[in-house]
Simulated scan of single mutants.
Amino acid sequence: MSVEVRVFRLGQCPREELDRYLRKTGEAGPYHSISWLEAIEKAYRHPGRVIAAYRNDEVCGVLPLVMIKPPFIRPQLISLPFCDYGGPVADDDTIREQLLAAAKKLKSKEGINSAEIRVRSPAGESDTWTTGEKVRMILSLPGSSQALFASFKPKLRSQIRKAEKNGLVCNIGMEEELLRRFYNVFCDNMRRLGSPVHSLSFFQALRAAYGPRMVVAVVDLDGLPVGAGIVLLGNEEACIPWASTLAEYNHLAPNMLLYWRLLEWVSDSGATTFDFGRSSFGEGTFRFKKQWGARPEALRWHQLDKASDLDNPIVVPSDLKFRIRQWIVAGWQCLPLDLANWLGPKIRRYISL
């Protein structure tokens, strides 16, 4: 039975039809939603593209893509930027290959310099890891927050209670005010880490696109936001792309209360999986996520080139690149916060990580 592959600009794609397919397949995660493309195009004006496969006029595969064109540089095609994964979602491997072949044609037609496909490997694909390797950390949820809390080790439960005893309070919702409070913490943390910050308009666009499938959590101490995070929902899966705390309050354990309240909320909302996001195997954030019971799963980022569809995994930067990055980070940390917040979004929109 023949398969027809169609390429859509974001504004012309059959949104409801594609999202309906993505919702019914267990392969798609929250980032695969057309909402992710909408938010990026609205906030950063990076054009979205959707490659869809049809069999008997029924969708049988989807590959979301974003075109990023930095000044004076040929554009790059990515599935997907600003998150851990994207890649093709399809009924079978043959259709998946057809979607990737169509992406190669689009790359050539548009004069695009490179195309990057970010995929998450199936659970259990690998049991061996290398220190520093990029993985995502996944926690299976037992069906209720009560059962989840009972599954934690006593030390973890005591750390959560410690945060509450320290007077911290966590609010979860979808209001604009919560989003702005999140952004204040996020900006401070990103400057401390030496990284350009996303624009507030990007998060506002995500909120508009995802609606009730996005929630914001803010941890307060006497009315001051000291920790915050955002969770996206889709296909009984929850992911947390951004979480931040103010370093000077970390001794009060705001991160423990933040993650617990979000885990509690998504568990009681019907999610069966919680994606803690990308970490370097064996390092600090990896260990933090592991204590919640999360397990590593591989992330494979590949260049789509002339040789084959997925044959060039992204490699670890050289020592020289690593040192240059350290210098940039150190310089950014020295910037006044207002300057970093003004300049950051102008740079961040072109950094696809």
Results as ranks from 00 to 15, higher is better:
Q291V: 06
L252V: 13
E38C: 07
G111R: 05
G61P: 00
V59Q: 00
V50I: 12
A307T: 13
G229D: 04
A102F: 06
L224F: 10
M67L: 15
I34S: 05
E264Q: 10
I68A: 09
I314T: 09
R300W: 14
P88A: 08
W265V: 04
S2V: 14
K155T: 06
R192G: 11
L148M: 14
S244M: 06
G227C: 04
R261N: 05
S2D: 10
R74Y: 06
N184L: 14
K162R: 09
C170V: 04
D338W: 15
R118K: 08
K69S: 13
N255I: 10
Q333Y: 04
R287N: 03
Y259D: 02
T131A: 08
T285G: 09
L221I: 03
Q12R: 11
F203W: 10
V218T: 05
P154Q: 08
S144R: 03
L139V: 01
M67I: 05
I78G: 12
T128V: 14
D220S: 05
R15P: 07
E27S: 04
T272Y: 02
A307W: 15
R136H: 07
T245H: 01
P196G: 08
L37S: 09
R348G: 09
A298T: 04
R295I: 12
R96M: 10
Y54K: 01
L179F: 13
S279N: 06
R349G: 08
L65Q: 07
C239W: 02
D309G: 08
D127F: 15
R261C: 03
N56G: 03
W129R: 11
S158V: 12
I160H: 01
P142Y: 02
A123V: 09
H32S: 00
A43H: 00
P313S: 14
Y259E: 02
M67A: 15
P345W: 04
H198M: 11
V185R: 13
N166W: 03
D220R: 13
M174F: 09
Q159R: 15
L258M: 09
V5A: 12
S144T: 01
L337C: 11
L262C: 08
G211N: 05
I40V: 15
R120Q: 14
